[in-house]
Amino acid sequence: MIFSMNRTDTTPRIGVLANDDSWYFHDLERAAKGVADVTRVDFAALQSRIGGPEKISAETLLSGKVEAIIVRSMPPGSLEQVVFRMDALAGLERQGVLVINPPKSMELAIDKYLSLSKLAEAGFRMPETHVCQTWQDAVAAFEQLGPSVVVKPIFGGEGRGIMRVDDPDLGHRVFKTLQQMGQIIYLQRFVPHPGYDLRVMVLGDQMWGMRRSSADNWRTNLSRGATATAETIPGEVAQIAQAVMRTLDLSIAGLDFLPDGEGGWYLLEVNAVPGWKGLSAACEVDIAAKLIEYVRERIACRTR
């Protein structure tokens, strides 16, 4: 154990990696009142001192001072910055700190190609996808996957950077532009959209369902104006969701499912830093309180 043996208080100390204006941090802070000490941690402030036992800090010392870290944001950065941030979280994990989600699981889920590759290998059903580096290969893939494809960034969320391409000439220009920008080209067969999809929030062995509907946009992200209502999770989807969580070793995640029109479901993607503002309202559940309770129980199990 890395924690002080003469510590007498039993209030868990939890760091939350979040932006300074994060609604989610303030929601966790509210939910933790009286049961946990919650402190905001800035990703850009993470640093490490090596030479003797490694000490990882972010303005204040984290090594030996917090029992858990909740990753609530994943800001963009250079390759070196992203790698170091994950390395620092892995260092805290080696020192006994509970990291939600684990760094290796975060790396899997954040990288759409890596996560879909692993999930496809495990037998999960998802739209046919092609990932390449040149516009010529993308044009060939479009001809095979078309007549309509969705082009996505490998990293990203909330529908940012996603576009539908159903015209070969437009696709040609889009693919060339992406290659010139040094981007990987990620194409996914467009699945006919029924006007809604299903977001499943999983936390440990609990889960909640939310239907996201949009009458005039195939992108059903709430940040783009979609409406949210509570939805009963079909048994098949619930089983898939728990199996995905085990496959990627996630503690909390948002999973997006799309009906195939024939009674089945496609798994679209897995979000390892899921928002819960809309889901909490739609399902009338305090997700922040559930998450704090989950972390406290995990800490207590380690202590015992």
Rank of each mutant, 00 (worst) to 15 (best):
I233M: 10
E231L: 06
S214H: 13
G275Q: 05
M245A: 07
R199E: 10
R211I: 07
P234G: 08
M207C: 06
P234L: 04
M207P: 00
E269I: 03
G275P: 06
M245V: 11
E236C: 05
R199A: 05
G254C: 09
W265Q: 10
V244W: 03
G195L: 13
L222E: 00
Q242D: 10
S251P: 06
A215F: 09
R246A: 15
M207L: 14
V202E: 01
D216W: 11
T232C: 09
G204P: 10
T247K: 12
S223G: 13
G225N: 06
N221K: 00
R189D: 07
E231H: 13
D260P: 04
A238V: 05
D216K: 12
W265E: 12
L203N: 07
F257W: 11
Q239V: 12
R224Q: 12
P192I: 06
G204N: 05
G209K: 00
V273C: 12
T229Y: 01
E269V: 04
R189Y: 07
N217M: 02
M201K: 00
A228E: 01
M210N: 01
L279N: 02
L222C: 06
T229I: 09
P259L: 08
D249F: 14
A241V: 07
I233L: 10
S214C: 08
A281S: 08
L258R: 08
A228N: 03
A281N: 06
S251K: 13
P274F: 08
V270Y: 02
G264W: 07
R212K: 08
V270Q: 04
Q239E: 15
W208H: 10
P192Y: 02
E236H: 05
G209V: 02
P234I: 03
R211P: 06
T220M: 04
V237A: 07
L203V: 15
L248C: 14
L203A: 13
A228P: 02
A241I: 04
T247Q: 15
S213W: 05
A228M: 02
F190P: 04
V244D: 05
R246N: 15
T247I: 08
L198G: 01
G264V: 05
P274H: 10
G261W: 07
W276Y: 13
L268T: 01
S251T: 14
A282R: 00
